[in-house]
Design a protein around this nucleic acid. Sequence first.
DNA 1: AGCATTATCTGACTTTAGTCAGATATAAAT
DNA 2: ATTTATATCTGACTAAAGTCAGATAATGCT
Lengths: 290, 290
Amino acid sequence: MLDPVSRVRRFNRAVTSAVGALDNSFLGRGRPLGAARVLNAIGQGRSDVGEVRDYLGLDSGLMSRLLRNLEDEGLIETQAHEDDARRRVASLTRAGKREFAAYEALSNTQAESFLARNVQAEALLAAMDLVASALTRDRIALAEMDPRSDEARYCLGEYYAELGRRFKQGFDVSLSRDPDAKDMRRPRGSFIVAMSDTLPIGCVGLKGTDHGYAEIKRLWVAPSARGLGLGKRLMDAAEDAARRLAIALLRLDTNSALPEAGRLYRTTGWREIPRFNDDPYPDLFFEKRL
Amino acid sequence: MLDPVSRVRRFNRAVTSAVGALDNSFLGRGRPLGAARVLNAIGQGRSDVGEVRDYLGLDSGLMSRLLRNLEDEGLIETQAHEDDARRRVASLTRAGKREFAAYEALSNTQAESFLARNVQAEALLAAMDLVASALTRDRIALAEMDPRSDEARYCLGEYYAELGRRFKQGFDVSLSRDPDAKDMRRPRGSFIVAMSDTLPIGCVGLKGTDHGYAEIKRLWVAPSARGLGLGKRLMDAAEDAARRLAIALLRLDTNSALPEAGRLYRTTGWREIPRFNDDPYPDLFFEKRL
DNA sequence: AGCATTATCTGACTTTAGTCAGATATAAAT
DNA sequence: ATTTATATCTGACTAAAGTCAGATAATGCT
């Protein structure tokens, strides 16, 4: 009754019935589930018909009919893709946007009432984040983003907060050599964010310098996504970005209060080198030749 | 993107697609999902037709047909209920047991492969327990059980382990006045276990004495089920059991290292009294007149 | 230009799920 | 003993989902 497999299966049962209830609530708007799902996928920005079909796992015939139904209802419009007239792109009409908003409101209300029923919400949310990351680990997408984007700033905020907790003396960004955003943008560098669904769960920066090397900065993985090998994936992506920018030498600094990071560097071809800057926080320095 | 509602919705999306994959895997055995679900419900011990129907939320006509299909496949047999010939009781035939075992193996394999993909399994399992408890909070069932049953012993084991962690000096059952199981059985007392699906997540004992009162012992709620009001529910159930046994006075002892417990007693009509036993662990004593 | 490939659509199905109004048999209440 | 209630079943449906073989039109490749 208490072995790990039983616990996973208990979770599956709990979640199956919760999902069933969720699906049923979508039926309340007088539209079959299939059509509602297509409408919502389009509302969420999946405009390409093929993309929606893949996402929902639908047969092309069925998909076509569902689109036709939504069109007849006046909720969507389709037009040919501008680069490839075989493909179709769907968009919500004014009425479709209203309908989509109604579904969104339904989902939000449900989420709110779930939260209201559960007092210890923060622990529960952290648990939900962890489970969601584990379930979607194969769909974690890395994307190059502007270091000033909302997603990047969120990651950096979390990263600084974590350093503050980890370092005995705390962490004050202004004392550190905060990399200028433009050094982490092409063509000088890069900033990569790991997204699980719509949630940023990790990041890494590649910061260009004028000293013949680039630096890896701000490697962070959300607590809810650790153990999924994401740190390695982010580092690989940063190295690829460096190669594309014809950068041959990488350096980074880190702190012994972050042992996971040190372990990762040591096992992926990085070599410890002497201090190469006067930032007060790091006490370990690494280099890797690409 | 990071407010609680979005996090809940991200979790919902993650889980919806996981559940979909799970359901689809059940289709691999050449039987529609409805029939597979009925077969599994019966295999899990839900023999009463009405019970299965309620559990799966099926229309009685549909249920009847699904049963007929399984019967035609030679997987189940039905007979009249021995106390009420209107009701039907279903059971698996030999072939049905084989088929059920195949479904079980499928579920177990999936759970195992999920666990194998996730290194930090214990943290993940704890998170899944918490989420499952929260999702099924309305279906947590309290049941009177023998204090020697597997479920009860599991709860007690967890309870002792937790006391060991909470008390500065640790906890050794043999030093405490371990209640004899028979004092927590009718007609002397009672033992109540809270079950969430098949997982015991809390307990409380009502221990009869010869001193004109009964004692509440072993109130425990699993960490994964705290914040759901389960402690209160268990105490209410214990009091009800006492009333049914015509017990008019209740006492209990506890320790100030368990502040949640103390708070619960104080807010539910219990009155602090002087020490009434010489157990070395408790330092707080309460009484309640029913 | 010609041919294979791709994305979508249409028509013609089948299967599954679900609904609803009785029918039947038994049990419970008066 | 009659009436009422309950559990299940049957027949006759409808709706939704899914399948599959072409048709159509645009694109890519040689």
